[in-house]
């Protein structure tokens, strides 16, 4: 196919924002319903679980894009010679953090899906709900890992939006790029505080 490599890279970018980004937002939204109380959370989880064709949707719309974006992304990231100590510019640190958070998110997501969705629900037959999550997160180590995983995922998404806006030629000039940079940072603060607050509600 003509422009094959180009398209793969572009789909990589698209999958990050459209599939993963959208799912991340939805996921944090669902989780944040815990702030309305355990029952509220259980209700939203149950509503999701009642969706028709849940497993195919999970595999096609979430699992596959994550695997595509994640595996390809790691291959790309491993080729970089990171140099923020030599070139300590803001954007270079962001570039570096984007890759570090990618590795963390990659491991975190695999572990997260493995322990909850596969070992917990599919194999263990547990019902994913407040009680189950309360148990899981009561372990301080696990909680810590969740905090890091959450922050990494959110950072990777919001900072990814900055790259996305340039990759798709949405902003070109330095001023436009700076505005986007600040906006994505604000978004990071917003989403991660929602997520972190939600997390603390599971261990109250």
């Amino acid at each position: 196919m003509k422009n094959f490599d180009f398209w793969i890279r572009r789909i990589h970018s698209l999958s990050g924002v459209i599939a993963l980004g959208a799912f991340l937002l939805e996921h944090i939204f669902t989780v944040s319903t815990v702030m309305g109380g355990p029952a509220n959370f259980d209700k939203s989880v149950a509503a999701l679980a009642a969706m028709p064709f849940l497993v195919p949707i999970e595999i096609i719309a979430i699992g596959m894009p994550i695997a595509f974006h994640g595996i390809l992304g790691v291959v790309y990231a491993l080729k970089a010679k990171n140099n923020p100590l030599r070139y300590g510019y803001w954007n270079n640190w962001m570039f570096y953090l984007q890759r570090i958070t990618a590795y963390i998110a990659f491991v975190f997501i695999i572990w997260h899906v493995w322990t909850l969705r596969i070992v917990g629900k599919a194999m263990g037959g547990h019902l994913i709900g407040y009680d189950f999550m309360h148990n899981v997160l009561s372990d301080p180590l696990t909680f810590g890992f969740y905090v890091i995983g959450l922050l990494s995922s959110v950072f990777h998404f919001t900072n990814g939006l900055f790259g996305f806006s340039i990759t798709w030629g949405i902003v070109t000039g330095p001023r436009g790029q700076r505005v986007v940079s600040i906006a994505t940072l604000a978004l990071f603060v917003l989403i991660s505080s929602v997520g972190l607050t939600a997390l603390t509600h599971f261990v109250k």
């Binding site: 422009n3 490599d5 180009f6 510019y89 954007n91 570039f95 984007q98 330095p174």
Partner: peptide
């Protein structure tokens, strides 16, 4: 087209060091 080949423009990772350097 040349920039869309393997290793072309799409491999840019937006570190933006270039403009500083």
């Amino acid at each position: 087209d040349a920039l869309m080949e393997k290793g072309g423009l799409a491999s840019c990772g937006n570190s933006q060091n270039c403009v500083q350097a």
